[in-house]
């Protein structure tokens, strides 16, 4: 298997040494297959969101090694991690984490603001993504005026604007009804067909029971309890 992400004995401890110390992830060693759809499955508090954050360079492990695209990112300084986040990952958050008061177009283009990309190509990229996600007519609408499903599509659009190789989604269907969850999965399948690696943290059977999920990594109490598919443990 061609692994795009590998973790070795990764642990994450919050508030280490304090009375409220929490060991969120313990000794996780997994491999995420390039071009596949991988689900991190587990109940609330199992550590799947923390693990997703670790492999997405959103935080650093307390122990262990994380290799992304052949590069060990566990010990990288913050500014290098930012570059990895920008170039490699697109995030879809559980709460969408869109910025209220901004329009759809502004929210989607936000990751590109600090880059040197010219306005013309940036706008072209935006228009292409909005069209793909059927959001073209919403481009100038403020984010708070959209439905939950539309907001999620905007979050997906924002995750795609940097043209990342890997999409990370945290509980993407938590706030969606069945129809919208199915719509989301269709979008994810389409992205996967385009060659994107997808990693989803979820406890929604609507997702992990789908036949096209390549790998399922089950977690409980911060540790990996089972792996189905091609992921090593």
């Amino acid at each position: 298997m061609d692994a795009v992400i590998t973790t070795a004995e990764v642990s994450k401890v919050f508030n280490m040494g304090l009375a409220d110390e929490v060991r969120a992830v313990t000794g996780v060693s997994i491999e995420i297959a390039r071009g596949g759809i991988t689900v991190l499955k587990g109940p609330s508090g199992s550590g799947k969101t923390t693990l997703l954050g670790l492999i997405g360079c959103m935080s650093r492990p307390t122990e262990g090694k994380i290799v992304v695209e052949g590069k060990d990112v566990a010990k990288l300084p913050e500014r290098f991690l930012t570059a990895v986040r920008r170039k490699t990952f697109g995030f879809i958050f559980q709460q969408f984490n869109l910025i209220r008061g901004l329009t759809v177009g502004e929210n989607v283009m936000l990751p590109l603001y600090p880059t040197e990309i010219q306005t013309g190509p940036m706008t072209q990229r935006l228009e292409g993504i909005l069209a793909k996600l059927e959001l073209t007519d919403k481009r100038g609408v403020k984010i708070q005026h959209l439905s939950g499903g539309q907001q999620q599509r905007v979050a997906i659009a924002r995750a795609l604007i940097n043209e990342p190789a890997i999409i990370l989604a945290d509980e993407p269907t938590a706030h969606l009804d069945t129809k919208l969850s199915e719509d989301f999965l269709h979008i994810i399948m389409a992205l996967n067909k385009d060659g994107k690696t997808i990693v989803i943290a979820t406890h929604d059977p609507l997702i992990y029971d789908k036949p096209y999920i390549d790998n399922i990594i089950e977690m409980r109490d911060g540790a990996v309890t089972a792996v189905k598919g091609g992921c090593a443990q």
Binding site: N97, Y113, P114, N162
Partner: peptide, 16 residues
């Protein structure tokens, strides 16, 4: 604070 976190998560550097 959350907005800063979002900006960092989507690829903004500390200097940005």
């Amino acid at each position: 604070r959350q907005e800063i976190g979002i900006l960092k998560a989507i690829g903004w550097e500390t200097s940005d």
